[in-house]
Design a protein around this nucleic acid. Sequence first.
DNA 1: TAGATTGTTAATCGATTAACAATC
DNA 2: TAGATTGTTAATCGATTAACAATC
Lengths: 227, 227
Amino acid sequence: MNSSDKQGGVTDRKIPNSVIKRLPLYHRYLCQLMRQKVDRISSQKLAGELGLTASQIRQDLNYFGNFGMRGYGYNVKELHNEIAQIIGLKEQRQLVIVGAGRLGRVLIDYPDFKEMGFYFRALFDNDPELIGREINGKKIYNIARLEQYLQENRIDIGVITTPPEPAREIAEILVNGGVKGIWNFAPTTFNFDQEQVVVENVCIGESLFTLTCRIKEQIERVENILG
Amino acid sequence: MNSSDKQGGVTDRKIPNSVIKRLPLYHRYLCQLMRQKVDRISSQKLAGELGLTASQIRQDLNYFGNFGMRGYGYNVKELHNEIAQIIGLKEQRQLVIVGAGRLGRVLIDYPDFKEMGFYFRALFDNDPELIGREINGKKIYNIARLEQYLQENRIDIGVITTPPEPAREIAEILVNGGVKGIWNFAPTTFNFDQEQVVVENVCIGESLFTLTCRIKEQIERVENILG
DNA sequence: TAGATTGTTAATCGATTAACAATC
DNA sequence: TAGATTGTTAATCGATTAACAATC
């Protein structure tokens, strides 16, 4: 009865990363529409709002099933639920944060994550000042205990919010400890086998450079037009 | 004398976004090599370290000039300097942060930004508790004063670290106030004309969903192989 | 029925990879 | 010179866009 059995339905071709990245975006906007009591939406309107094309949205959704109705569009609530399921909203995930600095503490404090199914279990750091303290009811442990902790607790995702230097070694410990994903905020890249672990790099500083590069380009473009 | 005048050099074809995103990555790794006193590197080795292909790196660099030497590779220091110039390292940029919550305070506290040329000038918030306080020597102003502040000070980039609801309105004020870029941490998208302003969205929460989606896929793939 | 909008195939566009002559 | 590695062109791959029959 699930959508992939539907006639004209979905084969299990690999989902492109570009599509996966847009799913949370769709989900967020559908939440908003639900709050506004909108109950239907066309790919056209959705596209306009999100800066995409209608074609792209229909293509994306058809990787997962036929959620729309010809001549009508998509039922907001239904599509919201389908996407929630696809992205695994509310499926419980256990996380630990390595690096109890400012950024680590921002993440563990953020209340929405729990609602989304992300449970931060503990923090780890090497700063004696921090070890033993509690933040938001979560203990900061000595990083030396990370390996043991991972043996005793099933953790799905390890979050790295340390400086770049120790990041690689920490990532190794996390992977050996059985995490399936690393959410990496340290400006470092890892070279793990993709089969072993999925790494998501959040390059905050680098995105600021990307922004300035694009500004520069934009200014040049305008100058060229003006002659 | 600049590199784009060299024979076999560079036309001003548009630089793809995918290329721009990789430049800070190159820069960061070259810094690391410099610290390690490495003075030459081939596209091959660079690629291996960064998880790219040699071809890709050579293609990327050739958008900007011919920085390598056949049979030798790239001089680390020279390439580092070229890329620093391309990404505008140390070119001074003036920024304001709107939203003096935890995330805003993480950003304004981060010392490396100053070295990179990013100068955070002020924070704005609507919380009476926060207005008038100082963080890291920067004052928190009433958001009602943002418009006026932008008229009196040339600000290049506006950073939005508020909840999603006021983000759109704030973005409007920033754009009308003449910022050339928006670095947006709020989970909202804007629909500005690209000519007007460059927007860089940092979707922290969404990247966590991307991670879990990819983990799910990975697990399915392994299960399929095991039968 | 007429109008709207999907699902889906085909065409286009862009980015990555491969290949190799040029040359250090 | 022989070996290495670039710069650059051509081939491939993948993602986006366009188009339209299907159908609500």
